[in-house]
Design a protein around this nucleic acid. Structure first.
Lengths: 297, 297
DNA sequence: TAAACTTATAACTTAAAATTATAAATGTAA
DNA sequence: TTACATTTATAATTTTAAGTTATAAGTTTA
């Protein structure tokens, strides 16, 4: 019993005539006769009462007819849906983000939505590079914005922009007035830094190392948002990616560049090397890189 | 795109492995690979991201998978239902009846229900032989109890019993006391008879003719029930099939046999010659004839 | 009674789904 | 690292089933 037989059967019932049904189905009449009688053999009872002058559904055949119609209808929906899926993929985009990307990403999405208004977008916050790799390899995210090069053989990462790390101090802090600031200058300030596991923490500690300085860590936080609130209250100083503060406004905070080559980082766009990504996702990735090129040029 | 391909696809997804799925499906692995890639070509996008070490659904494939499961599930229900239908037919029996059968038929049904408790039975009242033929030819009824031989070439009718027609008079009527009654005796009585179109009317008028008598028709009715009520009130006399009054009780009515060969009739069980009738209907027909044989022996 | 239709059967062709054998890629274990 | 097991894909071939044409048998209509 297959869909072809059901299509044949329902058409014969509707036409009440094998020959006409065969024409509609673009098959020969004997082929149709044969298909129906095979179907009858399979179910084990006659579906149609037929001779050269009349054609009736049997009682049992009527039940078969109703069910067959339902099934064919469902199949029809399926093929239609697949045609849509072919155009728009699943209509779902899952993105992993580092915190500093959360301020420019909405602008990219805004552009993208102009082309693909019906795509559902899921934004996931990803902490370390481990989490980025896992989510990409497990197909939990289609792509990720990350601040560390991923080296996994099944993943591809390419740099999309560089950003400086910037010092944030309270405007009443003496440092806000200095013409130049070095890492050494920060040693006595209460320092606010990400908890262990975050890439930013590693970047900052590495920069201190390079300048043979060490921070006076007083607060460990998970989100830059929290760090900013602490600085706003004058409780300490912190270093965060430039892009985070660029789009935010904290009235009492003064951002200051520090003279240190190490205080910058590269941000990457990563995705699976082999995974099939539908056209709209490629389009999104292009939107992203183009937006960042124009922003940083 | 057919059910076979969907079954293959869903099994591969569930097994996450072509080779294992092929074993489960009792086909060779290349056949399965081929079927899936054909399916992918047809829908126009990859369903599975696969290589020698991993197998993932694509986003679009996931939608296909869900829909395919639904469709296969519905198909499963259909095949199960058809197995039941094979056993019990449509579970529906439609019977055409003449009025006088309505009193013994419930007893037959009672027996029948012992064997087939879940069959739904529809009882239709059929008037003339025309209506009987139409309902049988249009497959509106599976069988009919009728009091006239049907001669249509597609119909089959066989006698199931003979019944006498009996005179009904009010107990105060002088006729109720006579030792013998002839048709002539009825000429001055107000006579109650079925309206034109009913076979009983023809039978009775024919009997009067044979005895060179003619009734004094004062009332025309459609149902024996009505005729009995009129007699009960002493408004006239009537002649009805013995079987009707046999199972009813009207306190004031006295049934009397009349000496007339013509005052009897044969009741037939009729059905379509060629129409397929499921086993339970044949069983019902047997129940009927057996019941009547034992009743009238 | 002939002509026009119906569905079914038979013989044959065509298409597709299956098989076996084998290649290519990768993982595992000595 | 090499040998071996295990994965999916490809190629050549066989088998199955679906389709075709021709035609028979039965009915209806003109």
């Amino acid at each position: 019993m297959d869909l072809r037989q059901m299509r044949y059967f329902t058409t014969v019932v509707q036409q009440k005539n094998f020959s006409k049904a065969a024409q509609l189905l673009h098959v020969s009449q004997p082929s149709l006769s044969n298909a129906i009688s095979k179907l009858e053999k399979e179910v084990g009872f006659p579906l149609l009462e037929r001779n050269t002058r009349s054609l009736h559904l049997t009682d049992s055949g009527k039940i078969m007819y109703e069910r067959a119609l339902e099934l064919l209808n469902k199949f029809d929906h399926l093929t239609k849906e697949m045609k849509e899926v072919k155009q728009t993929g699943s209509g779902h985009l899952s993105l992993g983000l580092i915190e500093s990307a959360k301020h420019w990403m909405p602008k990219v999405i805004h552009h993208f939505k102009g082309d693909f208004p019906n795509i559902k977008i899921q934004l996931l916050e990803l902490l370390g590079v481990e989490q980025v790799q896992q989510s990409l390899l497990n197909y939990e995210t289609h792509a990720a914005i990350t601040n560390q090069m991923v080296t996994h053989r099944d993943l591809l990462a390419y740099p999309i922009y560089n950003e400086r790390l910037v010092l944030l101090v309270h405007f009443q802090n003496e440092l806000s007035q200095r013409p130049t600031i070095t890492m050494k200058d920060l040693e006595r300030e209460p320092f606010i830094i990400s908890t262990s596991g975050f890439q930013t923490r590693k970047d900052i500690l590495h920069a201190f190392d390079k300048e043979q300085a060490s921070p006076n860590i007083m607060y460990e936080i998970e989100r830059f948002e929290t760090a900013c609130s602490l600085v706003e209250e004058g409780l300490g100083v912190t270093i965060i990616p430039e892009n985070y503060i660029k789009y935010s406004t904290f009235p009492s905070i003064r951002p200051r560049y520090i003279q240190s080559e190490a205080l910058q980082r590269t941000v990457y766009l990563a995705h699976s090397k082999n995974r099939y990504l539908p056209p709209f996702i490629h389009s999104f990735l292009n939107h992203t890189t183009n937006f960042l090129k124009s922003e940083n040029s």
